[in-house]
Design a protein around this nucleic acid. Structure first.
Lengths: 181, 181
DNA sequence: CAGAGCATGTAAGAAGTTACATGATTGT
DNA sequence: ACAATCATGTAACTTCTTACATGCTCTG
């Protein structure tokens, strides 16, 4: 049954970036050229707590991407301090686009620390649920008022929609989980 | 990232569960008693794609929890097949409550594969952005219509609010990112 | 009674976290 | 000039993923 592998009219899917890799590539692309340290710092400044933004994560990641020829390294210096700058290769630009415009992955739910708790919130009493949701709501309110990315109106606008949507969802879901006691 | 809040006058925080550990504990608590395999399967059946739900992740995790005395193991069998059941110890119940009702962690943003892309979506053309958001919207719509957890109306209701909130957010954010071209 | 798929794991490796190390620069 | 902090990393450890192994149970 020797079977010819049908040569699909296949799109050239070069490399599949993880989300952390994609985010790092996008940061570098934005600056044109950046050091690992700069990338790590930009993660650390983002309002999401999900990635630690530790250099210990970012340096090996950048090295990986360079090894795969998605980034090109160039030695530089600031005064006496040596530095390694990275910029995207052509293959890197293609990989970044594939990652950025991947609707399938973008449509996924990702990970939400509230959602996962809601699923199990029927295991506590009604009054505990109410107190919990009230507490979460207050914290998200506080988070909404915190200034993030003060220098970038575009990111602030996105962040505002995120928080607004979250508050709306909390209100909606509160009704649901209190019904089902 | 503003790190480490001051070490508060110590509440009796027994153990700090990770989110994956918390979810596993909650699953076991729900059944009263469960095997590692059953926990892994329940993850695999959840509509979130974030955790692989592979047994290779769950078995060591459960063993860890047992070693920390949060779970108690008991040998059982189904016919000839041996089995290890786990149930929560008293310390485990306390740890689960601490995890489940942790408003601080629940209020966090978690990880969202769309949000992270939106941040960098100014790097592509307006028409690509529009096509991308249209694609994502369609996929989330499709996801909304998929039947999940057919056996549990409570979970279905929660899931419905999640998807509805997501669709609302996509609409809101679409306006924002198309403005800022 | 043979094959499919269920239940129970183990092993190797990748990826991220915390902690540490070290020299350069900057503020006072 | 001394301390603080920035910039640049490395190392050890933990946790998840993918892939494999193996024996049961069920179904046609």
């Amino acid at each position: 049954m020797a079977k010819k592998p049908v040569p699909q009219a296949r799109r050239r899917v070069h490399v599949r970036l993880t989300d952390l890799e994609g985010a790092a590539m996008a940061e570098i692309a934005r600056s044109g050229e950046a050091t690992s340290y700069a990338v790590a710092r930009s993660f650390a400044n983002s309002p999401s707590e999900f990635w630690s933004g530790s250099v210990g994560a970012v340096y090996p990641l950048i090295q990986r991407l360079a090894r795969r020829k998605l980034l090109a390294a160039s030695a530089g210096s600031t005064g006496k301090r040596a530095r390694t700058d990275y910029c995207l290769t052509r293959a890197g630009q293609a990989a970044l686009r594939d990652w950025l415009l991947d609707t399938e992955r973008a449509a996924g739910l990702g990970f939400d620390p509230l959602r996962i708790r809601l699923v199990h919130l029927d295991q506590v009493s009604r009054s505990e649920r109410q107190a919990f949701l009230k507490g979460v709501n207050e914290r998200v309110q506080a988070f909404a008022e915190r200034e993030v990315w003060p220098e970038d109106p575009r990111l602030r606008a996105i962040h505002a929609t995120v928080v607004a949507a979250r508050l709306g969802w909390i209100a909606a879901v509160s009704a649901v989980v209190e019904d089902h006691e």
